[in-house]
Write a protein that binds this DNA or RNA. Structure first.
Lengths: 336, 336
DNA sequence: TAGCTTTGCTCAACCGATGGAGCATGATTG
DNA sequence: CAATCATGCTCCATCGGTTGAGCAAAGCTA
């Protein structure tokens, strides 16, 4: 006993011996099933006291191995490098805990191979449910998990084989575009059409935002040439290089993510102040500092709470159908 | 067999039956110990093929339960809401994977109770090692883990009972303070002493930064009144309220984190442009957009790569001694 | 060809928690 | 007073993978 305590964690067997009872009794006291098992209050108290004193923590591996459900919920996330994903991670964790579940998050660097590997790892952990956030190829993950009897949900990017929950990209993009167009009209008496920069043309959100972008132009009878729709990735450097090489950058820019915005803003810094003053932009995705930059006229802020509310509700429902639920975004305007 | 496949994941027993061999052989092929166990290449190939075809993934719970080491490394992190912690999380994950370990990260909202709960949860997962990042009370966690035979390491905030790895807060703060003082001297011909805002006076990093701040003043023969050292937390709102209430805000401000900077910048926005133009600040912690705000004269960027290099090296060493290793920071100046 | 080594595999115990089945008591009922 | 029931516990198999021990067959040596 004492030698065990010295370096190893106590198990229910150690506690049972200490208290003078059976491992089963200890287990049932510690996992809360003791009333059903007709363990006396007196014994329960003694077990709890011993557990407390010896710093007992359940061995999840053993527990999960034996049970049918693990109560572990997994989330895969592309990155931790912006406020949206950061908030998703934080809120996912706290909601899961509230629901008595164990959250496990892993980040996949927007790499399809890593996404699959991460999904496999989650299956290894015996997750009961997997939330795929911003996955490049969510259907492949859904297939993998379904084969293992694990339900999945697509968050922020839709798939076709499991429920999807996403922001209403179209409407938000249209509204943001209107705001940028208005700002250009107000400050420069023109400036349309705008430039659309960032994202990938094969990604659903980018397509929806582009649709909203075009819709706002169409409303005003403006046509947008193909050369003004630049969707060659989210990377800041890409955006910056593109802008540097571009002969005629429009006055107004629709930036498709805060990560891309980094590149845009870097480019802006390289311009002569007079030229820079002739630029207005808005971005899809919110950042507290980005919101305060001088030429910024609006940012779309995704509603993380609402997205996760819906996510947990859908998870509890247990739906496996290919449904798509949209959540409105907030449009944040500079409070100048 | 077939009915098992329909909803459940295959186990080594299923594969053994499929291939016509023993579970032991399957296990050893799949975990790489088969050469030592003198399994033939031929059998190994057949097992691997079957595993591939049936989408086998190991049950980590079972595997870890039996082994002495779990290869799981835990990290607790206060928040995901800034670039520093985001980068720490991403790089920790990728380095752990490179080393063949399974990373598990959880965030604790700067809440001491949650920190303890998270540490307990990590023990439940049988982590081999726990990295406590920015923990409020790291020693308590070290005690808890040591009782369970698990080594810990304190990252970013030091403890007294386990190795600590942190940024050289003193030097970086002194250098940043010099930069702000220089900017004020250049732009306003004075402006000293500066205001120090953000952080907690009971937190080691804040104390070190304050020491560097005072040192830079002392070099120039400037004394700083107590009223200019405001360390009532990191929250943006606090900083903003404080500044709003303050009678005489100095021209130069040392902001102790990007989170606090949010409050400072918000306050700046509320000033008349002429007044705002009379302010210069620098911040401890880097943010790409924060770096571009007009009155910003410098940001301290912690060297995440170096911090994690050292962390993994210390982890491999297995030291348990109370040592403290410092990593220099980078000082990023606006590239105007 | 007996005796030894190597090759290629299987057996069975085990990790820690869980839950169905079961077994003494003591209390209650007809 | 025997039969029934409630109480308070214990026994044991089990989850899936790992590992030390062991065993049969083939190869090699003297």
């Amino acid at each position: 006993m004492s030698d065990k305590n010295s370096s190893k964690r106590p198990t229910i067997y150690d506690l049972a011996e200490l208290v003078g009872t059976s491992p089963t009794a200890v287990s049932s006291v510690l996992n809360g099933s003791w009333k059903k098992r007709r363990i006396s209050q007196k014994l329960a108290d003694r077990v709890l006291k011993a557990a407390q004193e010896h710093g007992y923590t359940v061995n999840i591996q053993a527990s999960v191995l034996r049970r049918e459900r693990s109560n572990i919920v997994g989330m895969i996330l592309p990155k931790y490098d912006n406020r949206f994903f950061g908030a998703m991670a934080e809120q996912f964790e706290s909601r899961a805990r509230e629901a008595g579940l164990f959250p496990v998050i892993t980040c996949t660097q927007r790499d399809p191979a890593l996404e699959l590997e991460a999904a496999r790892e989650m299956l290894s952990y015996q997750v009961d449910y997997l939330i795929c956030t911003g996955a490049t190829d969510p259907d492949q993950i859904t297939d993998l998990c379904r084969a293992a009897g694990v339900k999945t949900l697509n968050l922020d990017l839709p798939g076709t084989k499991a429920p999807s929950i996403l922001s209403d990209n179209f409407t938000a993009a249209r509204d943001l575009t209107r705001v940028i167009l208005d700002a250009c009209a107000r400050d420069f008496g023109g400036g349309a059409p705008l430039l659309f920069i960032g994202g990938r043309s094969d990604d659903h959100n980018t397509r929806e935002r582009r649709r909203g972008f075009l819709e706002a132009h169409k409303e005003r009878g403006i046509t947008v040439p193909d050369g003004l729709m630049i969707t060659s990735g989210y990377a800041p450097e890409k955006a910056r290089e593109t802008l540097l090489k571009m002969a005629d950058v429009p006055n107004g820019i629709f930036v498709n993510s805060t990560i891309t915005l980094e590149g845009v803003v870097f480019w802006l810094r390289s311009l002569a102040p007079e030229r820079a003053a002739q630029i207005r932009y808005g971005s899809f995705d919110w950042d507290p500092f980005g919101a305060l930059l001088p030429q910024n006229v609006g940012m779309v802020r995704q509603d993380v709470s609402a997205l996760l509310d819906l996510t947990f509700r859908t998870m509890k429902d247990g739906t496996e159908e290919n449904t798509m639920q949209l959540v409105p975004c907030q449009l944040e305007m500079p409070s100048v």
